[in-house]
Design a binder for these strands. Structure first.
Lengths: 228, 228
DNA sequence: CGCGCCGTTGATATTATTCAAGACCAGTGG
DNA sequence: CCACTGGTCTTGAATAATATCAACGGCGCG
């Protein structure tokens, strides 16, 4: 299953050597913790099946969702620099991850230029992705921000061969809200309004995007932003 | 001056070869553009003197500030994955940057393990930094968010041997607001209130942090967050 | 059936935005 | 030297958006 988790352009023979060394699969049940803030950073985890969230919990306050990872995505880059994880990670449903011990990976990469390249690409991709996410947070309007999130989700689904129209959220309203910096109730209301407007169909955690073009223009077009 | 821009742990002899190849200094006047969204990604820029901002401008809307880089920091990671810059960059004051052609750097790194390491560290650091920034955006209260920004700034100043108490902002209120997702007026009011509370002294763009501990607790302690 | 969790929705309070007026400041030209 | 001007910052009042509080409905499960 490792082959599925790792970039395809890794040459076959290298993959063989690689897999022999570090292949390691782990099953998670819903809610099960993958790592915690403060844990030593030992591995990256490729989500093979299911989905995973990351979060922080400020001692005083309530959990804040920091990231959401689905099939084919990689969790754990936080803490790669410091050697310790800076957030918690837990499965949102029964899931399977491939654990990739990072020290071994690095070690191996020293003698394998292609693998080196592969790691490098992972890092830069993650960098670009984070950049995108940060820009999305610039959207101030609650409804537009939510739509941006859903469209991002749709894009990621399409990439993985799933339907980009029929989304199944694995996050609760509260978790979405936390991730987006919105209140649970605000998320719910925004979804209702979007449904009333005929732009999507909402049934609990199943969302059908009825009018992607309009949704896109909603995000790009009329987001009131602070001046500069 | 390149030596100042690059990580110190690069072995001297390698640095020599490196510098000979790619050393390239560029002076920027206030407001001068370093690169634009859509430009081919050719180089990273180490800020040697002064400061630089990145921003996007959605066709419809107003400029949104995406990042702020000071002396000793590196701009341009956006677009490293796609080969094109995804945001604009301009000098906030008269500045000097070292341009580091990235293709050359990569090429060179193939034969220099230490340089390889160095690039690698740059990437992971940037990753960690972005992660931190994203978490800061989770802070919902305008005042607390602003304080978090100022404390981050202070930390970066200290790291660079500048005073962590007396800050000189290079961003206007509007730019700070744009970066933080707040209105200009909100930023101004928050600063006034913080001053009234005796936590800092504000004189235009000069800010003196009078009570860092209280400021820190303000960020961590009582930020009302959505539930999850 | 009753319970707990999740989601929706209303009423209200709080917070931030918007609009607008004026203060401050530096640069410029009379 | 002094107004003038453009930009930035502060502040007030009105408005809009979101959070909070709370009630209720649905659904799965013991």
């Amino acid at each position: 299953m490792l082959a599925l988790c790792l970039p395809a352009h890794l040459a076959a023979e290298e993959l063989g050597a690689f897999a022999r060394q570090i292949d390691s699969r782990r099953d998670l049940r819903e809610g099960e913790v993958l790592f915690r803030a403060g844990d030593a950073f030992e591995a990256l985890y490729a989500v093979h099946q299911g989905s995973v969230k990351t979060s922080i919990l400020p001692e005083d306050g309530r959990e804040q969702v920091a990231g959401y990872y689905m099939q084919g995505e990689i969790v754990g880059f936080d803490g790669i620099a410091s050697g310790r994880h800076t957030c918690n990670s837990a499965a949102l449903e029964n899931s399977v991850v491939c654990s990739v011990p990072f020290a071994a990976l690095e070690q191996l990469a020293r003698t394998m230029p292609l693998l080196q390249q592969c790691i490098y690409r992972m890092l830069t991709r993650e960098l670009a992705r984070n950049h995108d996410i940060m820009l999305q947070f610039g959207i101030r309007d609650a409804q537009a921000r939510l739509v941006a999130f859903l469209l991002d989700l749709a894009r990621r689904c399409r990439r993985r061969g799933l339907s980009a129209r029929d989304l199944t959220l694995r996050l609760s309203r509260a978790e979405m809200g936390s991730y987006l910096g919105l209140n649970l109730a605000t998320v719910s209301r925004a979804l209702s309004r979007l449904q009333d407007a005929g732009l999507m169909q909402v049934q609990g955690r199943h969302i059908k995007l009825l009018d992607p073009p309009s949704l896109k223009s909603l995000v790009a077009g009329e987001s009131p932003r602070p001046q500069a």
